[in-house]
Design a protein around this nucleic acid. Structure first.
Length: 491
RNA sequence: CGGGAUGUAGCGCAGCCAGGUUAGCGCGCCACGUUCGGGACGUGGAGGCCGGGAGUUCGAAUCUCCCCAUCCCGACCA
């Protein structure tokens, strides 16, 4: 299936593109910039959804669903918001087609023009705050802790599977609170939820921080984020959580009566992660042999391959294999027993390897005689022959070990690719020749940030939250800096 | 929207410059047989409006013009 596959060294972006397609995760569709997420890829996304959804519910949130379409006028209510999204909105102007006069196909029926155009949501703050206005009258209605799983559309000029597509899937949480502090607490709570998810499920270490003004969400007071380092030394924003202040409450006139019978604007947060996480997952762990998936997100955690010559052998092996499958499933492990006769064992080995299945078991006639089984792990590509007794416990343990190992490997990689720069020369050298995260001083102005971006293509990924604030001088202007920020080239 | 390139079988490509029988090759696909502990082999077979349209010509995948689509670079991008 995937023999001619470039190494990361040879061509990193080709490696990524080929991996996504050849591992059956997604493909380009007939619609420019929009992808088809294939069953194998989608089942990974479903696992992500399930884990995140549980975390949201466990922290008191409920799911709801708001419309795909947003009246155009809603967008202009919040000035910064419309400015940020105006350039990438799909607009619905008509609601009917008709047969073309020349009989060739259909054309837009110009008489069916919408009174007010509809925007296909690039995010849902506006429609949601217009709705919340009706839900909120008193402090007793607060907080509102709602999340929605949805698709959104942002008309991107250039797209890449999972990393940037015109339409993508995500979740967006939208909360309303009595006080500023509650809204900030919510923003930070979700940042921790995302961090925990990235580290525990994706095996992906992330940096937490706040965005500089130029990277801030359109309409937010503060945007917090988690950033992860990919194997090519570029940073990927894996999730954002915004403290919206009272911006949307004021734009949509959402007030509540407090206990003192006084009207106040509510305080808000919004937060989201998207199918972009799939890109992060792929680029964080995979190698030149293909996809590597952390056990907690792998659709198939264990593949069992029988090795046999005759039909009677297969029958005998199948009995044993199915027995093992049951034992593993009893421990909550997802298992695929692949007894297809249409592919040879070697082919199957290569396929499961390429698709990142964490553990592969092989049973052949020799094993049947010796009471053994071959166990291969995807992360290290190591193989060993174990006694089949107690195999379910051994595999369960191995899966946990793989999960741990992937995280450690990714963390070591990040540590090895995190630098400090004190001069402009050091900085440009690191950005150009090494990549990775570079901690450096910055004078705090958008102007300097932009100049650095123009000169090096590196941007401020985040301002660390609770780093020891060390004073210094801006690497570009030499002006005073209150603390180091994290620079990197980014996706 | 600028610069460059490419459209030939499901996928990847050759053929085009120097027009000429039935358009090839690899992978994949189907059937049968032998195989099966790291991507098997043999034999036979199916599959093409050569991106679309117009033109030149006795004759066009090949030459000319127009159109369409895709990819790469740039601009753009919470």
């Amino acid at each position: 299936m995937a023999k001619d596959f470039p190494t990361r060294e040879e061509n990193y972006s080709q490696w990524y593109n080929d991996l996504v397609i050849k591992a059956d995760l997604a493909e380009n569709s007939a619609v420019r910039g929009c992808m088809v997420i294939k069953p194998y890829g989608y089942s990974i996304w479903e696992k992500m959804q399930a884990a995140l959804d549980k975390k949201f519910k466990d922290t008191g949130h409920s799911n709801a669903y708001f419309p795909l379409f947003i009246p155009k006028s809603f967008f202009s209510r919040e000035a910064a918001h419309v400015k940020g999204f105006a350039k990438e909105c799909a607009v619905v102007t008509h609601y009917r087609l008709k047969n073309a006069e020349d009989g060739k196909g259909v054309v837009v029926d110009e008489t069916a023009k919408l009174e007010e155009e509809l925007i296909v949501r690039p995010t849902s703050e506006t429609i949601i705050w217009d709705t919340y206005k009706n839900w909120i009258q008193s402090y007793r209605d607060l907080p509102i802790l709602v999340n929605q799983w949805a698709n959104v559309v942002r008309w991107e000029m250039r797209t890449r599977l999972f990393l940037r597509t015109t339409e993508f899937l995500w979740q967006e949480g939208h909360t309303a609170h009595e006080t500023k502090q509650e809204a900030i607490d919510e923003t930070m709570l979700i940042l921790d939820v995302y961090t925990d998810f990235a580290e525990k499920f994706m095996a992906l270490p992330v940096l937490k921080g706040v965005k500089s003004e130029s990277e801030r969400f359109a309409g937010a007071v503060d945007t917090y984020c988690i950033e992860a380092l990919m194997q090519d030394g570029k940073s990927l924003q894996a999730g954002t959580s915004h403290f919206l202040g009272q911006n949307f409450a004021k734009a949509f006139d959402v007030k509540y009566l407090n206990k003192e019978n006084k009207l106040n604007y509510v305080w808000a947060s919004s937060w989201g992660v998207s199918t972009r996480l799939m890109g992060a997952l792929i680029m964080a762990h995979s190698d030149d042999q293909g996809l590597v998936l952390p056990p907690k997100l792998a659709p198939i955690q264990v593949a069992i391959v029988p090795i046999y010559k005759k039909a009677e052998q297969l029958e005998e092996i199948s009995v044993k294999a199915k027995e093992i499958k049951k034992l593993l499933e009893a421990r909550g492990i997802s298992v695929k027993y692949d007894d297809r006769d249409t592919y040879k064992p070697g082919w199957k080995f290569a396929e499961y390897e390429f698709k990142g299945v964490p553990v592969r078991l092989a049973i052949g006639p020799r094993d049947m005689e010796n009471g053994t089984i071959e166990v291969a792990r995807r992360d290290t590509l190591e193989k060993e022959v174990l006694q089949v007794a107690d195999i379910d416990r051994k595999v369960e343990h191995l899966l946990a070990q793989i999960q741990e190992n992937l995280y450690t490997k990714a963390l070591n990689f990040r540590n090895d690719n995190t630098y400090r720069a004190d001069t402009w020369e050091e900085f440009t050298d690191l950005i150009e020749n090494k990549g990775g995260f570079v901690y450096a001083h910055w004078d705090g102005t958008a102007e300097t940030e932009n100049k650095i971006k123009d000169k090096t293509k590196a941007t401020i990924r985040l301002i660390p939250l609770e780093d020891d604030k060390e004073e210094g001088k801006c690497i570009l202007t030499g002006k005073p800096s209150k603390g180091r920020v994290v620079f990197a080239k980014a996706y």
